[in-house]
């Protein structure tokens, strides 16, 4: 255990790098998901085809292959990315491709009457999406999005392989200097577990907060009242 105590600051820094990569990757992921997801629903092949190709390519190949490709192969085109940029882009694009299917599914499964009602009210396609369809689709997207985010968090461990100094990278470093393999790896396993549990709780909270049906929302309010009573 002594190695863990002695090198704790390093692990702590590594953990924040992991959190940072997760957050940045999450932002890229959401942007990509909506762009590609809406692109696939477009009536113009000009948007639909590239979006479909993007999603299938990024879902069909390994994340690690993509990350290595960004890091090792792009320089041959004269594009040299920082390890962090390559890692965040690969993570965001990969998970974004999965999340794009979530966006597409959630929007496509809205009842047709909503679209028809918007048309009847004279709303254009953009306004219809922005004010009616997407807000309704978001509660349906949240649970799968939560899964994608937890996946993203776990997959950030792969960025250590393109030399980003995250939690896994630091653990390897400490292992190499101290040789205390068991303590270090068990510690980071637990740290990852805590991080992903926090993320799961957070998405659970968001799900209840933005739930469409009244029952779930009432449960959320009751819980909040209970928590307030607890702190008072």
């Amino acid at each position: 255990m002594s190695a863990v105590v002695e090198y704790w600051p390093l692990l702590w820094q590594g953990m924040w790098t992991t959190v940072l990569v997760t957050a940045l990757g999450g932002v890229v992921c959401v942007l990509v998901a909506f762009t590609a997801g809406l692109g696939r629903l477009s009536t113009h092949w000009f948007f639909r085809v590239p979006a479909a190709v993007f999603v299938e390519v990024f879902r069909g190949t390994s994340l690690l292959v993509q990350m290595f490709w960004f890091f090792f192969a792009l320089p041959f085109f004269g594009i040299q990315l920082y390890p962090m940029t390559a890692a965040v882009l690969a993570l965001g694009f990969n998970e974004g491709a999965y999340a794009a299917e979530v966006v597409r599914g959630a929007i496509a499964s809205r009842p047709k009457g909503q679209t028809e009602a918007c048309t009847a009210l004279g709303m254009g396609p953009a306004l219809r999406l922005r004010r009616v369809i997407i807000p309704q689709a978001i509660p349906a997207m949240l649970p799968p999005f939560g899964n994608v985010m937890v996946d993203l968090l776990k997959n950030t461990s792969l960025v250590s392989l393109v030399t980003v100094a995250d939690l896994t990278f630091r653990a390897q470093m400490i292992r190499n200097t101290t040789g205390q393999t068991t303590a270090v790896f068990l510690t980071i396993l637990v740290m990852y577990f805590v991080l992903s549990s926090i993320l799961t709780l957070l998405t659970g909270f968001l799900e209840r907060r933005f739930a469409l049906d009244r029952k779930a929302k009432a449960a959320w309010r009751a819980e909040r009242r209970f928590m307030k009573a607890g702190t008072a």
Binding site: L158, R175, F185, L189, F193
Partner: peptide, 17 residues
């Protein structure tokens, strides 16, 4: 809740000890 990579490291580096 934990990454596959770290699990693999655990099995590969810890178990031989």
């Amino acid at each position: 809740g934990t990454p596959l990579l770290v699990q693999a490291y655990c099995a590969f580096f810890v178990l031989p000890d």
